[in-house]
């Protein structure tokens, strides 16, 4: 009796470990299945559509508003110190290094990740995955791999769109509304931003986020218990785990890239 809570703790710990192991097994199997997307580019196109095209609107609009708010708030602070000219730099640096990759990944986890989990989970619940296996078609390669690579491909492009639209939004607010000098806006930005340090690192970040968010979404769907409650729980988990993983990884990656 006394040991019951301890046993429960141990059991859930083991469950988590086992799930972790299955997740990595699945990732390995998907990576080994890369050949599949090369052989059937059409499958990939459909998934880039699902993740990329369908998320573009929300990503673009969010980027625009984040850029505009950054410029508004940034101007408020910078103008106090007589550094309003650095507004462009502030907007661009925050967007390209952090907000672009991170917010895009969070949006994709919510918009496309949950949809992926529900789709795969439902395919499992209705025995479509088992049906594929019995047709001697590997569902990991045919269903999951194109989705993984679609997500990995779409994520950096979405993040770039987010940042670019955000910079333009910042320009619109900063230069258009708040009267910052246009030349200073761009030149300060260009002086301090570096292609390799900032843009490439941002792309690397969003590639990593693309892998992690899509992987979590696919695994949750593939590993869910095949019931309606199971699918709905898995969908929630995708968003929560995806967001936590993105934020945690962002900290690690930022420390690695910009910390030194």
């Amino acid at each position: 009796m006394l040991l019951d809570p301890l046993a429960r703790l141990g059991r859930s710990g083991l469950d988590v470990l086992a799930r972790f192991g299955r997740g990595h097994q699945l990732l390995l199997a998907m990576v080994l299945g890369v050949g599949e997307v090369l052989r059937r580019p059409r499958l990939l196109i459909a998934q880039v559509y699902n993740v990329g095209v369908l998320s573009m609107l929300i990503v673009g609009v969010s980027g625009l508003f984040v850029g505009m708010v950054l410029a508004l708030q940034g101007h408020y602070v910078l103008a106090r110190f007589g550094a309003a000219e650095s507004l462009g730099l502030m907007v661009a640096a925050s967007l390209v290094r952090e907000l672009g990759p991170v917010v895009t990944a969070l949006l994709v986890a919510g918009r496309a990740g949950s949809a992926l989990t529900a789709e795969i989970g439902l395919m499992k619940a209705t025995e479509q995955l088992a049906g594929l296996e019995l047709m001697a078609v590997d569902p990991v390669r045919r269903i999951l791999v194109p989705r993984l690579f679609g997500g990995v491909l779409a994520m950096p492009l979405l993040a770039a769109i987010f940042s670019a639209v955000g910079v333009l939004g910042g320009y619109f607010v900063g230069v258009g509304l708040l009267g910052v000098d246009a030349g200073a806006f761009w030149s300060q930005m260009q002086a301090a931003m570096d292609v390799r340090e900032d843009v490439v690192n941002g792309v690397i970040k969003s590639l990593v986020f693309g892998v992690v968010v899509t992987w979590i979404a696919l695994f949750q769907g593939y590993d869910c218990s095949p019931t309606s409650a199971g699918v709905s729980r898995a969908t929630t988990r995708t968003v929560v785990h995806g967001a936590l993983a993105v934020l945690g990884l962002d900290f690690v990656l930022t420390a690695l890239m910009f910390g030194g």
Binding site: A154, A191, M193
Partner: peptide, 29 residues
């Protein structure tokens, strides 16, 4: 779908190009 995906990829690359050339000024780097 193919056209939309093409447009999306083009938009993404234009954005990347914009970040590289206009935001961080690759030409001076």
């Amino acid at each position: 779908i193919e056209i939309l995906v093409g447009a999306f990829m083009a938009a993404g690359f234009v954005a990347l190009f914009f970040l590289a050339m206009q935001v961080s000024n690759l030409s001076l780097a």
